[in-house]
Design a protein around this nucleic acid. Structure first.
Lengths: 250, 250
DNA sequence: TATCATTTGTTCGTATGTATC
DNA sequence: CGATACATACGAACAAATGAT
């Protein structure tokens, strides 16, 4: 009795069966999956095979496993938090960013140098001097965490209030730059990747959660880059919102 | 011989050691890691432990494993592809999106209904009728793949050329809507998540690669949603670029 | 072309540790 | 404290992909 067919590895068949059971509604979001022992009985496979299947569903982000309790269906992640990336300016010339984030720790300010990436974003070479400020933030409504970083080239800070206060908040930085005579505009690049171990810890990310990475460059006259901001948060829980208007071609 | 220390699980210590060896430069991007057998000797642990450590580094996206060949360090992934999300309009009123993507297969058009998510984006209830068009695209320069979906509510298509040709390309759709008397504007939401198995296959994504998900709503008069476009591609290889201008507050 | 050594993938078994209730 | 559940670790065997002979 050669029983097993060849539609793929056993653990993949088990994973597919569980996935199917979830999408068919047998296990609803938040509900516990059968225990490993029960899955062994249900599918007639060994424990390593069951664990292998569970590991696959974990890295897909479909289930969450809690030591000593069980496996649970992870409700299909619709981002519950919208990051409005609009920048506003009132009649007095004051800038706002509409943020509702609260600091978890006090900001950390330091001196550093451009890397290949930050240098390219700021239109500077590698190894140029920068002020850096890191903030760990939390969103009061949802508990979502975020990392915010401000990078200010010495060349930008020079002769402005920023040289003395590189840890000013973004809206205030915009204010200072505008007061210094710059006509401001912004470009932003959004990308996603898996978190580094320390990012995962700081952002308290569960398994299989990518980081949404927003890099905003503030530009002055002639589109010259002035400062770079990086904002990192959970891609599962947050989405970045932009307004696009048609521009004329040359 | 109970001499094991307590800095955590054995496989985590092995994973940390390999991670350290990578960041210290012993193994450079693209270079092969020692084989499982060599790692067993090097760290004096069993094969399951080595494989567990390797699995951890895989889900972190730090290494890539090729069956029959070995494990390789995955160079730190800077997105090499920038998606300019600008929309242009020339003097004749023609719209462009600056895309350079080529179709891999012919577009697939179908009828469907709004879900909770697509309904919310289009300001419609659940179960409203839609035209859908799916395209599998590839970027000639990099080989990166993308999925593009157009969702057109019947109410939008009615009385326009779209009713007969719901599979028109985005720039052409904008054209048709503008000709129908709409003043167009766009909003876009970017988020990230792990791919579903079929998305992973269609986009040919390696392990530990999140999907960058762009949802663009074309709006007419009174900001009323007209159509919804979804664009999905590798978060590791692509970044979406936006231009932000300050808006006045009320 | 065919074969073989190397390397990773899959699957079983077994024992023990640790978290939760 | 005991029962249950997941985590870690060892051993062993065979399958499948790769590259070189």
């Amino acid at each position: 009795m050669g029983e097993i067919q060849r539609p793929g590895a056993l653990y993949k068949q088990v994973a597919a069966a569980i996935r199917e059971a979830i999408t068919s509604g047998e296990f609803t979001p938040g509900a516990p999956l059968p225990s490993e022992a029960q899955l062994i009985d249900r599918y007639g496979v060994s424990r390593p095979t069951v664990r292998n299947a569970i590991a696959a569903l974990r890295t897909e982000g479909l289930i969450e496993v809690i030591h000593g309790k069980g496996s649970f269906v992870r409700g299909l992640l619709t981002p519950s938090l919208t990051l409005d990336r609009t920048i506003t300016r009132d009649g007095t010339g004051a800038y706002g960013t509409g943020d509702e984030w609260k600091p978890v720790e006090s900001p950390h300010t330091y001196r550093t140098k451009t890397t290949a990436e930050t240098g390219a974003a700021l239109n500077l070479g590698e190894g140029e001097a920068l002020f850096g400020t890191d903030r760990l933030l939390t969103h009061p409504g949802t508990g979502t965490r975020a990392l915010h970083r401000t990078l200010i080239p010495f060349a930008t800070a020079e002769g402005t209030e920023l040289a003395a206060r590189p840890d000013a908040e973004p809206a205030e930085i915009y204010q200072i730059l505008a007061s210094a005579g710059h006509a401001l505009a912004w470009t932003e690049a959004t990308t996603a990747r898996m978190p580094l171990p320390d990012e995962r810890a700081a952002l308290e990310l569960p398994d299989a959660t990518p980081v949404l990475h927003l890099a905003r460059v503030t530009r002055g006259d002639d589109d010259r880059p002035l400062i770079l901001e990086e904002f990192r948060t959970s891609g599962d829980r947050a989405r970045a919102a932009y307004r696009i208007t048609a521009t004329a071609t040359a």
